[in-house]
Amino acid sequence: MEFDFTPVITYFPTLLQGLGVGLLVALVVAFMSIVGGLLVAVISVYVNKVVSWPLRFFIWLFMTTPLLLQLYFLYFGLGEWILIPAILVGILGLGFHYMAYNADIFIATIKAVSGGQYEASRSLGFGHIATIFYIIVPQALIRSIPQLGNNMILMVKDTSVLSAIGVAELVYASQYAISVTFRPFEFFIVIAVMYYVVNIFMELGQAWLERMTAYRR
């Protein structure tokens, strides 16, 4: 057992490229899952049961089944009708998965905020829609930050699973490099460190965001 990290240095640009793709996917998924999750939550709290029950069913379905199964379903399922690149399937799959988790959080915080706030805002002359978007949603968003941050940290780690359907992110890049150099241990250790560094930055960011918004709660 001797370690040789020189191949890792040779293939470091490939790894960085993979990391970049992974982070890019994570960024798009973060945007999609937060905006989508918020919409799903608002609709399922405020719109009638005909619309909100199917939405809740999908939240429930995405939360009780594993991500990998959902990805396989989307990848092979969508592949039957249209040919779309793996990276899009990955973004959609991860996006829907975390949209469900975020919606679940937003539903709880929206319910916690509304009540007194809703009535006060209506009595001051805001309409129903204006109350939801100017009064309820901003407060719910701020209250969701701690759990939302946790979810996003989990999501960045879950981008590694996308390699299973062939998205060229960090794990995929390292698997390629390993197939050429036969140095699995060294490469996987290095990418684990890379994920860990990203994770530390995300935790710092989350702590900062919580400090910045603490006075508003």
Partner: peptide
Amino acid sequence: SVIRGTPYFVQLLLVFYGGPSIG
């Protein structure tokens, strides 16, 4: 901190494919 900061998926790959090279 390390276990929670790295993906389970990568841990799995590291032990299964990387493990044999350290016996």
